[in-house]
Amino acid sequence: MLRTPYALCALLATALPNAAAAAAPQSFKGEYTVSFLGLSVARATFSSSYQGDTYSINGTVSAAGLAKLFDDTKGTISSKGIISGKRMQPQAFRADYTSGKKASVVDIRFANGAVTATKVVPAPGKRDPKSWVPLGAGDLSSVLDPMAATVIHADSLDNVCGRTVKFYDGEMRADLTLTYAAKGSISVQGYKGDTVTCRMGFEPVAGYRKGRKALNYLKNRSKMMVTFAPVGQSGVYAPIRATVGTQIGTLTISAGRFEAIN
């Protein structure tokens, strides 16, 4: 995690505004900067639209600043599905990105909340059965893709934290737990108002190599904080800022724009 361009795309998805279904179509836009040790390393823009009980989200991600000298990554991300009650139920997720001349794809299909097919290009290499934790029969039921995983339906800011999200990125299944940390306020283009910050815990479940230092750090030592703000009057709360402690420093994702566009 956080070692590949796709992992960066997945992380950027934690800073994505979305909205619940409404009688009239709704559209939202978010613009984000990813910085590391105070230096800009990536930018992302996400647009989402909602009509009835369906949603679609499209985003672009690109390396920025000094990061472009080492890894000129560009990509697009898309997700679509339905909204059932207070739950996002994805139907399809796709990430296409290039790093230099290397092109990669992650494509996940869902039905009734469960993964039905996963396509990864280039295909992963052979796994060592002694160190690899394989996906089990029930691991891919009631899971969310990297975009839908961070959308919180709640009655108020007080009810945003205090939950566990089942996350699947095309290879790894993990649980993300949100616990209350603090309330605050923020002002960015399109939004000025109250926020709530949750501490995020990370627990790998399957689809990963045991003993991987980066994963162990995220699980046992990393301080991960996510700040949520309401998206209009939709009853949905989405991340407007996030920080992730890594072995070599803190990664920060912050919104410069977070607003309804119609």
Score class of each variant (00 low, 15 high):
127 R>M: 12
127 R>D: 10
127 R>N: 12
128 D>K: 09
128 D>Y: 04
128 D>P: 07
129 P>W: 08
130 K>W: 01
130 K>I: 00
132 W>M: 03
132 W>S: 07
133 V>L: 03
136 G>M: 07
140 L>E: 12
140 L>V: 08
141 S>K: 15
143 V>T: 09
143 V>Q: 10
144 L>Q: 13
148 A>R: 06
148 A>Y: 05
150 T>D: 12
151 V>H: 08
151 V>S: 13
152 I>E: 13
152 I>Y: 01
152 I>T: 12
153 H>F: 15
153 H>K: 12
154 A>C: 04
155 D>Q: 15
155 D>F: 07
156 S>D: 13
156 S>L: 13
156 S>Q: 11
157 L>Y: 02
158 D>N: 14
158 D>F: 05
158 D>T: 14
159 N>K: 15
160 V>L: 05
160 V>I: 07
163 R>C: 01
163 R>I: 03
163 R>Y: 00
164 T>C: 05
165 V>C: 05
166 K>M: 02
166 K>D: 14
166 K>G: 11
167 F>Y: 15
168 Y>S: 10
168 Y>G: 09
169 D>Y: 02
169 D>P: 06
170 G>Q: 03
171 E>N: 09
172 M>C: 09
173 R>H: 12
173 R>F: 09
174 A>R: 03
174 A>N: 01
176 L>G: 01
176 L>A: 11
176 L>S: 01
177 T>V: 00
177 T>G: 12
179 T>G: 05
180 Y>S: 07
183 K>R: 14
184 G>D: 04
184 G>Y: 07
184 G>S: 08
184 G>W: 02
187 S>F: 07
188 V>H: 01
188 V>M: 04
189 Q>T: 15
190 G>L: 06
191 Y>A: 09
191 Y>K: 03
192 K>D: 13
192 K>R: 14
193 G>I: 01
195 T>I: 08
195 T>P: 04
195 T>E: 11
196 V>M: 10
198 C>M: 06
198 C>P: 01
198 C>G: 02
198 C>H: 03
199 R>H: 06
199 R>E: 13
199 R>Q: 12
199 R>Y: 01
200 M>C: 08
201 G>E: 00
202 F>S: 03
203 E>H: 14
203 E>L: 12
205 V>Q: 09
205 V>S: 05
206 A>R: 11
206 A>E: 08
208 Y>G: 06
208 Y>P: 12
209 R>C: 00
209 R>S: 15
210 K>I: 02
210 K>D: 12
211 G>F: 06
212 R>C: 02
212 R>D: 15
213 K>T: 14
214 A>W: 04
214 A>V: 14
215 L>E: 13
215 L>Q: 10
215 L>V: 11
215 L>R: 04
216 N>V: 05
217 Y>S: 03
218 L>P: 10
219 K>M: 08
219 K>L: 05
220 N>S: 14
221 R>N: 14
221 R>K: 15
222 S>G: 10
222 S>Y: 04
222 S>A: 15
224 M>T: 15
224 M>D: 08
225 M>K: 09
225 M>D: 13
225 M>C: 04
228 F>K: 02
229 A>M: 05
230 P>W: 07
230 P>A: 11
230 P>T: 09
230 P>S: 03
231 V>P: 01
232 G>Q: 08
233 Q>N: 15
233 Q>G: 12
235 G>E: 07
235 G>W: 01
236 V>P: 04
236 V>F: 06
238 A>H: 04
239 P>W: 07
239 P>H: 11
240 I>E: 06
241 R>Y: 10
